[in-house]
Amino acid sequence: MTIVVRDNGAGFDQPQADDTVFQLYRRFHADKTGRGIGLFLVRAHVESRGGKITVRSQVGQGTEFTLCFKAYANENIPH
């Protein structure tokens, strides 16, 4: 299963962010409130279910997150 979440917001400089996008306490917009834990938690939950999350972003154009999950991500769920 694949879930795509997209916005047309401020976006961020993805080449500059590189692999730090999902790091704990990583923030991209100093003028917005937050602690920088949201994307870290999302990735942790997605990966705990056997999934993967990717991101594409461009300043002034918005951001797109793609979450991919296996059909049965948890071995404890009957097939």
Rank of each mutant, 00 (worst) to 15 (best):
Asp31Ser: 01
Arg43Ala: 09
Ala71Cys: 07
Ile77Lys: 04
Pro78Asp: 09
Tyr72Gln: 08
His29Pro: 04
Arg43Val: 00
Arg35Thr: 07
Thr66His: 05
Leu67Cys: 08
Arg56Leu: 04
Arg49Cys: 15
Asp7Asn: 08
Arg26Lys: 12
Gly11Val: 07
Thr63Cys: 07
Lys70Ile: 05
Ile37Trp: 02
Gly50Gln: 02
Asp18Trp: 13
Gln61Phe: 09
Ser57His: 01
Tyr25Phe: 13
Gly11Tyr: 05
Lys32Asn: 01
Phe69Met: 07
Ile3Glu: 01
Gln61Asn: 03
Leu41Arg: 10
Gln58Trp: 10
Arg6Leu: 04
Val59Leu: 10
Val59Arg: 04
Arg27His: 03
Ile37Gln: 14
Gly50Arg: 11
Gly38Pro: 10
Val55Phe: 09
Gln14Phe: 12
Gly62Ser: 03
Arg49Trp: 13
Phe28Leu: 00
Cys68Gly: 10
Gln61Gly: 05
Gln58Leu: 06
His45Ile: 14
Arg43Met: 02
Asn74Trp: 11
Gln61Asp: 09
Ala30Thr: 08
Phe65Met: 04
Val4Cys: 07
Arg43Thr: 13
Gln58Ile: 09
Ala44Ile: 11
Asn74Pro: 11
Gly34Cys: 08
Lys32Leu: 14
Val46His: 13
Ala30Glu: 11
Ile37Lys: 13
Val59Tyr: 01
Gly62Ile: 02
Ala73Lys: 08
Thr2Cys: 08
Ala73Gly: 15
Gly51Ala: 09
Gly62Pro: 01
Thr66Tyr: 06
Phe69Trp: 10
Asn8Gly: 07
Pro15His: 10
Cys68Glu: 15
His45Glu: 14
Gln58Val: 09
Leu24Lys: 11
Gln23Ser: 13
Arg35Gly: 14
Gly50Ile: 09
Asn74Lys: 09
Phe28Arg: 03
Lys32Trp: 12
Glu47Met: 00
Tyr72Ser: 11
Gly34Phe: 10
Ile3Trp: 08
His45Ala: 15
Ala71Ile: 03
Gly34His: 07
Arg6His: 12
Glu47Trp: 02
Gln61Leu: 09
Arg56Ile: 07
Gly34Lys: 05
Val5Leu: 13
Phe22Gln: 03
Glu64Met: 12
Ala10Met: 03
Arg6Ala: 08
His29Leu: 04
Glu47Ile: 05
His29Gly: 02
Gly11Phe: 06
Asp19Pro: 12
Thr20Ala: 14
Ala10Gly: 00
Val21Met: 10
Ile77Arg: 07
Ser48Gly: 10
Ala44Trp: 12
Ile77Val: 15
Asp19Arg: 15
Lys32Cys: 10
Leu67Ala: 05
Gly36Trp: 06
Ser57Glu: 07
Ala17Tyr: 11
Val59Ala: 01
Gly51Asn: 05
Gly38Asn: 12
Gly51Tyr: 09
Tyr25Gln: 08
Tyr25Asp: 14
Ala44Gln: 14
Gly62Arg: 03
His29Tyr: 06
Ser48Gln: 12
Gly60Leu: 05
Asp18Lys: 12
Gly11Ala: 02
Ser57Cys: 07
His79Phe: 07
Phe22Lys: 01
Asn8Thr: 12
Pro78Ile: 02
Gly34Ile: 08
Met1Trp: 12
Lys52Asn: 12
Val59Asn: 01
Ile77Thr: 15
Val46Met: 11
Asn8Leu: 04
Tyr72Leu: 14
Gln61Cys: 11
Phe22Pro: 07
Asp31Ala: 03
Phe40Met: 06
Val46Glu: 04
Thr66Arg: 12
Glu47Val: 02
Ala44Val: 10
Asn8Lys: 02
Cys68Leu: 08
Thr2Val: 14
